[in-house]
Amino acid sequence: MVSKIENEESFEAILDRLASGLSLDEKIAANKAGAEIFKKELHDATPRSDTVYKDKTVHLQDAIIEEVSPSGRVEVGFSSESKRGHIARFQNDGWVATDRNGKKHKQVPGKHFWEKAEHASKGKIQEAVRKSLEATIARKVGK
């Protein structure tokens, strides 16, 4: 039976590094890894019109951004500068068509591209975040 831990000092140092938790940069790196996957899936699922816009108006696909909050959270959405977020909401959820007199007509069905992108990327996001965290832990352990 072993009564002594070999390399006790290095083992304690590894435990101390792991106990310190994730730094803000490590959280951001893990969250960005997942956000990149969702951003790509959302880009592919977002409808694109054939319209050629003037006055620097961008297509929905080109307005997708990721934003990092001070807490390390990374959010994916449509840029406020593009002023396309409300269009994306109409396209995704659908709307009730009305004429200029306010008379309601038919319900225009939504395309639900946001939900499709979420569904398509769910496992991939978890895998990307897991790989990023594994790399961080391996670096802290010293592998």
Rank of each mutant, 00 (worst) to 15 (best):
A29K: 13
A30V: 05
N31T: 02
K32L: 15
A33V: 08
G34C: 08
E36R: 11
I37C: 03
F38N: 00
F38Y: 14
F38H: 00
K39Q: 15
K39Y: 05
K40I: 07
L42I: 06
L42D: 00
H43I: 05
D44G: 02
D44R: 09
A45T: 02
A45W: 05
T46Q: 06
P47K: 08
P47W: 01
P47Y: 07
R48M: 13
D50P: 04
T51C: 05
T51K: 15
K54Y: 10
T57N: 10
T57P: 03
V58W: 03
V58M: 12
H59R: 07
L60W: 05
L60N: 01
Q61L: 05
Q61D: 11
D62I: 06
A63L: 00
A63P: 02
I64Y: 00
I64W: 03
I65C: 02
E66K: 07
S69R: 07
S71M: 09
G72N: 00
V76R: 01
V76N: 03
G77A: 09
F78N: 02
S80V: 11
E81I: 02
K83N: 14
G85P: 01
H86W: 07
I87Y: 06
I87T: 11
A88K: 01
A88Q: 05
R89F: 12
F90R: 10
F90Q: 11
Q91V: 14
Q91P: 02
N92K: 07
D93H: 04
G94P: 02
A97S: 09
T98F: 06
D99P: 00
D99V: 03
D99L: 09
N101I: 06
N101T: 11
N101L: 08
K103L: 10
H105R: 11
K106H: 14
G110E: 00
G110D: 04
H112F: 12
F113C: 04
W114C: 01
K116C: 04
K116Y: 10
A117I: 04
H119P: 00
A120Y: 03
S121C: 09
S121V: 03
S121D: 09
K122I: 09
K122G: 10
K122E: 12
K122V: 07
G123R: 06
K124P: 00
Q126V: 10
E127P: 04
S132Q: 10
S132A: 15
L133V: 15
V141N: 07
